[in-house]
Design a protein around this nucleic acid. Sequence first.
DNA 1: GCTGAATTTGAGCGATCACTCAATAGTGAG
DNA 2: CTCACTATTGAGTGATCGCTCAAATTCAGC
Lengths: 202, 202
Amino acid sequence: MTRARPYDRDKALDAALNLFWQKGYHATSLKDLEAALAMKPGSIYAAFKSKESLYLASLERYFLNGRDQLRRDMESAPTVLAGLADHLRGYGCIGPTPDTARACMIVKTILDTTDAEPAIRDRARAYYDQLRADFAAYFRKAKEAGELPPDADPERLAQRFQADVTALRIEAHNSTDPDAVAALAEAMARDVERAATGSPIA
Amino acid sequence: MTRARPYDRDKALDAALNLFWQKGYHATSLKDLEAALAMKPGSIYAAFKSKESLYLASLERYFLNGRDQLRRDMESAPTVLAGLADHLRGYGCIGPTPDTARACMIVKTILDTTDAEPAIRDRARAYYDQLRADFAAYFRKAKEAGELPPDADPERLAQRFQADVTALRIEAHNSTDPDAVAALAEAMARDVERAATGSPIA
DNA sequence: GCTGAATTTGAGCGATCACTCAATAGTGAG
DNA sequence: CTCACTATTGAGTGATCGCTCAAATTCAGC
């Protein structure tokens, strides 16, 4: 009864995600999307209702991807703190994939969204808060594992960690000097490790 | 010979600056600017050539304002490091003026500009680099004054300081909890003070 | 006043915006 | 193979985009 879909929804979403991530919501036109998704306007609207909906779907995909990446990083880490520190270092080395050399799409979204697009702005903020909550959960876990001193405040450590990630990724976005970015990442990573039991930081 | 200008160029630029800062380059339309500057399109183009030119003029004004603010902060500081630390604290307290509770316009510009607007992007990057150079100069001054240990690297301290400012201002932009922002600012300020002679940080 | 040059005006330009829908193409069921 | 049905098409919608320019307005010198 139902006709097979000649387009791949995941591929289309990936293409939209990349375009939106690079150019931002306002600077991306339907023409751009038509080219990137290889779909005609009618198909785009049939599949994703509106430009705003498509952006929200892309942002969700980005958020889930990032979350998965963090989880993978943490699973393979010897300790919680080491995992978080290495996660930072990961943003410091600009490899062949340009993904790491781009500022966080959630932050970009928050910065160029106003009250005119409340749905997008609120979703981006929710993702941002969720990410911070995830960081806080890891710091709590580290504290319970004895990696952090008893007086450590996981919420504040998470806030600082998120600030570092945000700033580092913007630096990676900007910088023409990979060594400088790596050095910044290393300094931030050391700060996380220094928060470990025995070293005051907060 | 020349007719007196019925419009105040500084006021107009301030209005443009505020609008662009809030909404960003792409999301700000000529209609918006007409309303904000109380000028008709023809006047705007006579005074400022194009939307892009107006944005560049606004960005320059923003940069110079920020630079002056930093200089004022540093002049009234007992020591260089204390001045820099207090400068950070300044971004932490969200007062009646919403200016401090907004992300840096230079960073916002860098993040939502692509190769499609090379002039704006390059200027924003130049201002960003210049600001970092100013920070580095202050750290160098601190080192010469003996506030920093002899092995301190002013360039890297400046890079980290700028990252902190960027992240802090984004946090101030986002957060609904002023106390959390103040706490983050305080933590960053303490890090600067901890860089002083006798305390390792980098 | 008057005149002439400089400034301001705002209707309107072509282009592009996000988006729609009647027509077309392609599929599974019989 | 044919038909019923749905996914896809792309020319075209009104609105808005950044921007222009001939006409109206405003002032300095006389």
